[in-house]
Simulated scan of single mutants.
Amino acid sequence: MSDVKMYNLINGNFIVTSGNTEIHTILGSCVSVCLWDPLTRVAGMNHFMVPGTPDAINGNPNQGYFSIHVLVNSMLKRGCSILNIEAKIFGGSNSLTPNIQYAIGTRNAAVADMLLVQYGIKILARHTGGHHGRKVIFNTATGKVKMKLLSNV
């Protein structure tokens, strides 16, 4: 029986691993992208707060454009192929404002969708939007994700 490592992912960070790890994070308007390559068994996950801008490929890891770019490139450096990488997207709630113009969660999720499509990465699942936060647990050995909606307290 192998030991499972636990890792708590906070905003502005990402992890790429081939180890048997459970990555935990809590999301409100933030978004996490979980990537998994079933052939190499390499997995990665990020956690970003704001969408950022398309020219932010050398910037702030709290911004989606930069965070996703770094996550994907880290997977590729570990020997993954874009053709094999699978994605799951979580988060992006809009609990603070009903106004779509300021709905940072919706904008975060849209950036994740758009960039993954541009990279040619298959999006297998998504659970985004709404008005509740989420707890996400990503099992990097299997590529499976457990997600729980959090109620307003």
Rank of each mutant, 00 (worst) to 15 (best):
K5I: 12
M6A: 07
G12Y: 05
V16D: 03
N20H: 14
I26A: 13
S29Q: 05
W36D: 02
W36M: 06
W36R: 09
D37W: 12
D37F: 05
A43V: 04
H47Q: 11
M49V: 13
V50E: 11
V50I: 14
V50R: 10
V50C: 15
G52A: 07
G52R: 11
P54L: 06
D55K: 12
D55M: 09
N58S: 14
G59R: 10
Y65Q: 15
Y65R: 07
S67Y: 12
H69M: 14
V70E: 13
V72F: 08
V72H: 04
N73W: 11
R78V: 07
S81T: 15
N84Y: 13
N84S: 10
A87P: 06
A87F: 10
K88H: 11
I89T: 00
T97N: 15
T97M: 13
Q101D: 13
I104T: 11
G105D: 01
T106G: 02
T106Y: 01
R107M: 03
N108K: 03
A109W: 01
V111A: 05
D113G: 10
L115V: 15
L115G: 06
V117Q: 05
V117N: 12
Q118P: 14
G120D: 05
I121G: 07
K122N: 07
I123C: 05
I123P: 03
R126C: 00
K135A: 00
G143Q: 15
G143Y: 05
K146T: 03
S151K: 13
V153L: 12
